[in-house]
């Protein structure tokens, strides 16, 4: 299990301060964090606790005010805009609350959008098969349900075979039955391609499908729980 225990992310004293005029908002107050390859982590916390800011910094979408964030041997906090773009392009898959699909492209084409620029992608068809959407691949977003759109977004995120899959409220806009399907797709992908998966949610019930659960409050990790046994999404109820 050496590969499994290999550290893929670590942060040291990660701090983020937003300044708006004379006001300072401390979004992160020195976060120390580690994740190993293939881990499925759920991040919980109230609004404004800093969990999204944290995800954005480790995802290369935002920069830290102080502290360090590392992905493998890349120091993310030292990369410039170009470096961060390259990092996102090569290593990170994102899933958003509102899917953010391109409305003018079909499901397959939305996935192909990413595979065209990725270094070692799977085929769009394989990615859609992983989320059980082979049948719907030629439909445009406007012709798909919310759950289907989110599964397309997951397929798009994993089609590049990313080392990291970052999901910010992936079930936030969905009803529970559809949400379960999406979570099943996420766990399935986590197992199949071994991407380290970080899922932000408001929904505490989801914690049970994770390897590890972090709780954010006031810009810090205030609680860390390791699940001895993971549940499958179908077993979770909310």
């Amino acid at each position: 299990m050496t590969a499994m225990s290999e550290t893929i992310f670590h942060t040291k004293d990660l701090t983020k301060v937003y300044r708006s005029g004379a006001q300072e908002v401390h979004a992160l107050r020195g976060v120390d964090f580690q994740a190993v390859r293939g881990e499925f982590i759920v991040i919980l916390g109230p609004s404004g606790s800093g969990k999204s800011t944290f995800l954005n910094i480790v995802g290369g979408l935002d920069t830290a005010t102080a502290g360090e964030a590392w992905f493998e041997d890349h120091q993310l906090t030292a990369l410039d805009e170009r470096g961060l773009t390259q990092y996102r392009r090569d290593h990170v898959g994102f899933v958003f609350q509102f899917y953010n699909l391109v409305p003018s492209l079909t499901a397959r084409e939305n996935v192909a959008l990413v595979t065209e620029i990725a270094r070692r992608p799977m085929s769009p068809e394989d990615a859609l098969a992983l989320v059980s959407l082979t049948e719907r691949r030629d439909h445009f977003p406007a012709q798909l349900s919310g759950g289907e759109q989110q599964r397309v977004a997951i397929a798009r995120a994993i089609a590049k075979n990313p080392e990291v899959l970052l999901c910010d409220e992936p079930t936030g806009a969905l009803d529970s039955a559809t949400g379960i399907k999406v979570l099943e797709a996420l766990t399935q992908v986590n197992r199949t391609i071994g991407a380290t998966t970080l899922v932000i949610t408001h929904n505490a019930a989801i914690r049970e499908i994770a390897d590890r659960v972090l709780r954010f409050a006031d810009g810090r990790i205030v609680e860390e729980t390791v699940n001895a046994t993971k549940k499958s999404p179908a077993e979770v109820s909310w």
Binding site: G59, L61, E81, R82, T85, Q86, R88, R89, D90, V92, F94, F96, N100, V102, P103, L113, V114, I117, R156
Partner: peptide, 12 residues
């Protein structure tokens, strides 16, 4: 859409 593409790793 364009901002989403930037997130996905598309350059400016």
């Amino acid at each position: 859409e364009l901002a989403s593409l930037r997130v996905l790793g598309f350059t400016r």
